[in-house]
Design a protein around this nucleic acid. Structure first.
Lengths: 224, 224
DNA sequence: TCAAAAGTGTTAGATTTACACCCATGA
DNA sequence: TCATGGGTGTAAATCTAACACTTTTGA
């Protein structure tokens, strides 16, 4: 042990902002905190980083434990490191946001964890600095989704253009012009029309599209 | 101690990518590592996070110790948390980038720390995962500087438009059109022409400009 | 038959890009 | 006097934004 110094050891946790989309609104998963300090407060889902796993792995594991899903799209938000951010001990937390297709998330499993979907526009007061994390997550997801095709992680693999547009409207919090939106989509050859029709959302029915990951390259340009 | 668990304690460090601009090139400060493991390797400057300080404060302190400067512009890059990233112990590091006006940095002090300015295009192999940090820093600084007026932190308080343009060219790694660049600057009323003339860079002399922080608001739009 | 969502083009305005010459000065 | 960097405008092309009606079909 050369210069490593016990004084600087801290607990390290991860906290996840798990985004989902329910056909109308952008939501995140929160739950009532099960332990002290802060028992009963609304809180993000998180956990401690173990000695044997990377920080990214800790986040993946946390997501898996809560949702039963693997290979979730996930991106780091950053470290939250105020001295007193956790009322109990010195804990530094690395926040992540994740995008899931809410319908992949088993309802029974959700309820068994006491997890609730909350509209991003109506987030209650959360434990510790979790509200800050959510605000930062929202900004990052907006930037990311306007430049990279990651929003598809929030949708089923087949989706209508109206769904896609509504998603972007929910993420940005603005209304978009239908014709301009569809014009932009048409220019992206990795968003592919199928000959399948969705009849759930309208009488007439709407064509289903899919995102073709393989047709998308770094050079493709994506702007929605 | 309720659920806090000794297993998840880790050492936490900060590493700083300190950007400077020398009239031509964008550079960062690196030094030869003074301690084991990795003694003698090129490395970013960093330090451990103490129990009594936030992670941001640890980064500020590290910057101050190296440069003698306070209130440096600084922004978090993120956490680097692979299990084996540090060859000695489990150390998670939070990376920051900082922008300084290189001429504010006392040369004697720099030499006394063995710090060297290295061209961002010619970064050698660095200790541990520091190259990854530098790559991420470069991307973030590009995004940030094109949307927010933070580049001025890399320049003296009075600067010529050629200096400003050269800075942006160095950051983006492309050439910009002089007339278009100056047209855009002219539209930003918080970049103000003084009646002072710089004679160092040319025989004719060039007007000096200043960035007026107070004239810049969130609503101003900045695009360079 | 009508309510509800799907689908479809055009035009004006704004923004972006490309481009070349004269000016002032110190050496 | 000439080499060096400073300073300036215009026009074409591209992109963005605004806007309204027809179609289909289940209830």
């Amino acid at each position: 042990m050369t210069f490593y110094n016990e004084h600087s050891k801290v607990w390290l946790s991860v906290d996840c902002i798990i985004f989902g989309f329910d056909e109308k609104k952008l939501k995140i998963l929160v739950g009532r905190r099960q332990m002290d300090p802060g028992r009963g407060q609304w809180s993000l889902y998180g956990g401690f980083v173990a000695a044997t796993e990377s920080v990214d792995e800790a986040a993946s594991r946390t997501l898996f434990e809560l949702t039963g899903l693997r290979n979730i799209y996930m991106s780091q938000i950053g470290a939250f490191g105020k001295v007193d951010r956790d009322p109990g001990e010195r804990v530094v937390s690395i926040a992540y946001y994740a995008l899931i297709n809410a319908s992949d998330y088993d309802e029974k499993l959700r309820k068994s964890h006491g997890a609730e979907w909350i509209d991003i526009e109506e987030i209650p007061e959360l434990y510790s600095d979790h509200n800050e994390m959510v605000i930062k997550a929202r900004k990052l997801i907006q930037d990311k989704m306007s430049n990279e095709p990651v929003g598809f992680n929030l949708l089923p693999s087949l989706f209508t253009l109206t769904q896609l547009q509504t998603l972007y409207e929910a993420v940005y919090g603005v209304e978009l012009d239908k014709r301009n939106f569809r014009k932009r989509v048409k220019d992206m050859d990795f968003i592919q029309k199928t000959d399948l029709i969705d009849k759930k959302s309208s009488k007439r029915g709407a064509y289903l599209y899919r995102f073709n990951k393989r047709a998308y390259t770094e050079e493709s340009n994506f702007k929605l």
